[in-house]
Design a protein around this nucleic acid. Sequence first.
DNA 1: TAAATTTATTGACATAGCGCAACGTTTCGT
DNA 2: ACGAAACGTTGCGCTATGTCAATAAATTTA
Lengths: 189, 189
Amino acid sequence: MYKLLKAKLENSTNATQIAAAEIISLFKPISAKRNEVLLSPEETCKYYFFIEKGSLRLFTTNTEGKESSRYFAFEGSFCTALPSFIDQKPAMEYLQAIETCKLLAINRTDFFKMVEKHSFFAGIYQEILESGFIMAQKRIYSFQGFDALEKVKWLIQYQPNVLLRVSNKMAASYLGISPSTLSRIKAKL
Amino acid sequence: MYKLLKAKLENSTNATQIAAAEIISLFKPISAKRNEVLLSPEETCKYYFFIEKGSLRLFTTNTEGKESSRYFAFEGSFCTALPSFIDQKPAMEYLQAIETCKLLAINRTDFFKMVEKHSFFAGIYQEILESGFIMAQKRIYSFQGFDALEKVKWLIQYQPNVLLRVSNKMAASYLGISPSTLSRIKAKL
DNA sequence: TAAATTTATTGACATAGCGCAACGTTTCGT
DNA sequence: ACGAAACGTTGCGCTATGTCAATAAATTTA
């Protein structure tokens, strides 16, 4: 049940068994069904999730109800609506299970307590922030001046899981193209 | 000369005068002329810069030579080619002064030494990463499904400095629209 | 300060990709 | 297991925005 989380923490440099165990003990198991919404825009995000199994996505809807997906996360990753989690303001976005999930959740207070107490865990948090930042930047660059075909190729190269495990509609809303266009591009390979 | 940096550090909670002074002593002043390139894609980024005066931008060029601007920074901000600074790999992007600048630079070793030594400075770094991440996410959301007019309005609302202090060409390349389109939109207000 | 270079504006034209719609297919609820 | 609902695919016409080009304005260099 805590297999992947345990591996993640214990493989971290400077982690001790004891510290890892303390942190793990603060994560509570949560199940989520396919399509279940774990967080709505008006809510404030209370938990940092770790995915043992399944996948999550973060997305918004604009005023006309059109979805825009921001992030997909799969087993072995942490995922939360970070701005809300950090600032404790309404999330302004949805967090949704897109497959049946086994999740582990730590609440905000405990999370930051552990970040302060265990420097190796602060290191993990720092890595999450750094890689999230870098990923976001790459995506911004990549999408500037790319046409639809180039975006799809980029996705295949850098996040192949997305096209394999996520619906066309969601993948399209991640790329900022219409489902029709994505469908046509896939047909041409 | 160190006025803004001093203010930034000393206004931080948990900062002591002594610690702030130690950190400040590791920043060396650097001048940069308008349009001067401080870092090229094949170079590895050695410094974290703080802007006392002027402005910087990060940008790439694609294979056809078209520029794509990623980030503009003005006085009072930290700025570096973060992925390169962190991983010490080629930057894959340019860092350029777009106005005449007075900069303060700290090298990577000293920077991370201070992050480890002074928890308030680690806090500042954490804030930079968090806000950078959040900003990048907002931008991704905003640019998905926005047409050119909406992008410009968004920029006016959230980063008015960009349109005021940066050339149309650069602002357009930041928004992912052509200079012509930006010009036409501005004409219509 | 004048010439040279770069940038901004505006018009004419071409086109990628969107919305819409129709139809087939998969998934979901009971 | 069945019907209903959501999703994927594909065709068609339209519009926003890109490219190209010509002129005007601004900035840099000497």
